[in-house]
């Protein structure tokens, strides 16, 4: 970071007077080309927003606010209310987060505080493999293996809670293998590596001196983690959870295969439902006209939500890493 700025270095070179005009131009062209490459990111993002909104416009125009406030999705009658899908996206992502966060934090703590360096590497590799399995493979396994295995378990649980208030509104009702719960569980496998990697990164920023101090005061390992690590990483963990949430909300194919595709809003997690991304995947093939526009509209909605979640997460991450640097200086 102590290096000279680009313009200072260029100034030095120009004073040397040994560069011919062609060289100067080559440098400018090269810089310009890399700048254009960098600008494609901004161009693509802008183009995504513009082109999808343009294609979705007829649906937005036609449905107005009812696009997000109505749950009546009836392509045959040109009614497009996406509320049920928004609900499904939120519910499945929340289930995924609720399952994945404790597991991810546990893994991150194990690799940073407990495992020996020799054990650490293989664990990190294996967790990364979890992220390498394609979404559609999780979906295939989820629908043919997991959903079939889970259905009787769901039914047993639904039987247990039948007469318990509150619990029976969540776990009661008719239980099926292709459901919000199955989708959430499959999603939790997919977001665990992301949340683990990010929390591990923030855990690693905690100063060893602080940990040593806690141990020297007679703390057990857990007490050391509680007083030195956890308070320091709250921001990083919030960001990690948000990025995991963003990923879960955008996940398409696995959810499309296991969620059961029924347009309903229900508190019963063992019932089938649908999510924004899954509906696009399942219906786009046959869609024409306004129906297609409405599906692209769902994509616009998904894009806006995930972009906002990601921006917020990155800002939190940036702020907390700056704080940590400040405290260490």
């Amino acid at each position: 970071m102590t290096s000279l700025t680009a313009s200072e270095r260029d100034a030095g070179r120009n004073l040397q007077g040994n560069g011919n005009a062609g060289d100067v131009w080559a440098d400018r062209i090269f810089r310009g080309a890399t700048l254009v490459a960098g600008l494609t990111v901004l161009a693509v993002l802008a183009l995504i927003a513009y082109s999808t909104t343009k294609e979705a416009w007829p649906a937005f125009h036609h449905a107005g606010l009812s696009f997000v406030t109505s749950s009546r999705w009836d392509p045959a009658h040109n009614k497009f209310g996406a509320l049920a899908f928004v609900y499904g996206t939120l519910v499945t992502s929340l289930i995924a987060i609720v399952i994945a966060v404790p597991v991810s934090v546990g893994i991150a703590l194990f690799t940073t505080e407990v495992a020996s360096p020799r054990l650490r590497r293989p664990i990190v590799y294996v967790i990364d493999l979890l992220a390498a399995i394609p979404s559609v493979v999780y979906g295939l396994w989820g629908v043919f293996v997991f959903a079939a295995w889970a259905q009787p378990k769901y039914q047993t649980v639904a039987g247990w809670v039948k007469h318990i208030p509150v619990l029976n509104t969540i776990f009661g009702g008719s239980a099926t293998g292709r459901s919000f719960m199955t989708a959430g569980i499959i999603l939790s496998f997919m977001v665990t590596p992301i949340i683990t990697a990010l929390t591990r990164e923030t855990f690693a920023t905690v100063a060893q001196d602080d940990k040593n101090a806690a141990i020297a005061m007679g703390a057990t390992r857990w007490e050391m983690i509680r007083v030195t690590v956890l308070p320091r990483v709250r921001g990083g963990m919030v960001a990690a959870v948000m990025l995991g949430l963003g990923r879960a909300m955008g996940e398409t194919i696995a959810v499309a295969l296991v969620i059961g595709s029924s347009h309903q809003i229900t508190t019963h997690l063992f019932s089938s439902g649908d999510s924004m991304a899954a509906v696009i995947a399942n219906e786009f093939g046959e869609a024409q006209g306004d129906h297609r526009a409405a599906l692209i509209g769902l994509g616009v909605l998904l894009f806006v939500i995930t972009i906002l979640v990601n921006m917020a997460a990155r800002l939190v991450l940036r702020m907390t890493s700056r704080d940590n640097m400040g405290s260490r200086a």
Partner: peptide
Amino acid sequence: IRFMADVMTGVPSIVMGLFVFAI
């Protein structure tokens, strides 16, 4: 650009499909 590249990693893959479909 750096910030937007980070954000772009979070764009759902189905949205990329819709984007290419549209353009």
